[in-house]
Design a protein around this nucleic acid. Sequence first.
DNA 1: CACAATTACGAGGGTCGTAAAAATG
DNA 2: CATTTTTACGACCCTCGTAATTGTG
Lengths: 276, 276
Amino acid sequence: MFELSDLEKLVCVHEAGTLSAAAEALHISQPALTRAMQKLEAEFGCELFSRTKNRAELNVNGLLAVSEAKKVLSTAKRMSERMADRAKSLTSVRIGSCAPGPMWVTEEKLTALDPNAEISAELSDNDLLLSGLHDDKYQLIITTEPVKAPGVVTREFLTESLLVSLPPSHQLANREGIHISELEGQTMLLFSELGVWQRLCDEKMQGVRFIVQSEMGAFTDLINLSVLPNFDSSLSDGRVEPPLNRVRVPLLDPAATMTFYISALKKHKRLLDITG
Amino acid sequence: MFELSDLEKLVCVHEAGTLSAAAEALHISQPALTRAMQKLEAEFGCELFSRTKNRAELNVNGLLAVSEAKKVLSTAKRMSERMADRAKSLTSVRIGSCAPGPMWVTEEKLTALDPNAEISAELSDNDLLLSGLHDDKYQLIITTEPVKAPGVVTREFLTESLLVSLPPSHQLANREGIHISELEGQTMLLFSELGVWQRLCDEKMQGVRFIVQSEMGAFTDLINLSVLPNFDSSLSDGRVEPPLNRVRVPLLDPAATMTFYISALKKHKRLLDITG
DNA sequence: CACAATTACGAGGGTCGTAAAAATG
DNA sequence: CATTTTTACGACCCTCGTAATTGTG
């Protein structure tokens, strides 16, 4: 029996145009995709591709299959939505995160889905996050590494990059990118509660003087009133209006970019799905 | 992501009324079915059953899910049919079987699906069947045991029981069932080409005298003209009109009932499916 | 006490990714 | 020679079945 996941792959192949591009989009390897398509051909008993040795193009059967697959997936999606309506509302979701950026994003997404939900979130370190997940202290945790534990399902969540927010008059303001080493000797504004980013400041920015502020209102005041640089996140893009008279310059060091993973107990798998 | 196979299980649970009955119908164990339903509940984020410790009954959410699942499965079924239309017609299917009964059944099914197809079938023993499958000498083989080989997909096919066909005047004719041992001393008509059934005759019916006939026309003439008993198959039920003035009595010995398995290479999986 | 559902646990099959091969423009 | 597809192979995850547990009528 073919499965919905097979049909999703097929549709993706059509949209991507080539097997390798589709594999990229699906976050799987090309061989895996090739095999999935071969499986469908065996199921249907007919070829879906016209193949030249280094090109696999959907033929007339394949195009029909794509069209039919879209119909099936559409009804399946409707089913998902209908069932989601019946799902327990998100009365109380507790999020644990190792970094503030992904935490805010998650809070916003869940609040958008259910404005009445009680969403709480807090920063913690990886060990406490993992144990808190099993204790049901957190229903969702955000970590820097995939969680390999039985009964836990993990998904890549998002990537965050740090940027430096500068007044246009600053000497670094017209740069395409900045290396951390170039911040040597600067005085910067720093919002506390950095989570896993704290290590970056502690270890690689020992020549930077930080003025730490933990109260958000005061922090934004500081930004508006001073000409001191501060850090911003790529996750702010399009979510927070950029401060006036500030330009943002990316930090080029690989250490200034992190990929986060989001995990939940299997029984709360749906929480993972709705954070899409 | 939930899959079509999960939805099939759900619908089956609804139709069967209870998990264990559905498991029976699906040829899987109760625990497997329980887990599949739990998986769906996790996917949807809502309970589908109202559970008392020894009873799991679909609740309102579950009934909605069943209804939606039927729609999804229906579109998937349509897709299957559309794709089957595009499949290569069965220009040449070669069947190998270890017994004549299942072989005839298979030939009939395939011929019904495609009257223009060239279906050929022959009897052979298990070893030759398996090697013939890999050599593409046969596209479908029928054996007494599941085939455990890479690249081969096997399915339980059907069960055949032997019966004794007797004139009503025969001393055994009014029995509910007969044991092989009771045939001792009889003279019976036997159609040659018994395949795997031959062993039964050779080993357990040494006290029976057989009149062997390999030509079908002559054999039916013999049946009609004599009062000698002969063997019939449960597979004849409803497919061949029973000979006039004959009654059929089951053979009670377990050895007189066999389960057959049908196998194909993965690339010919569709041939397996259409023999449903 | 037989039966339904669930949990625990080890085994098997399917799918995956890496690596290598073959072919093309 | 980079790119695309396909095959080979080993590893892992998921689902399965058996067995044991719990609770019920």
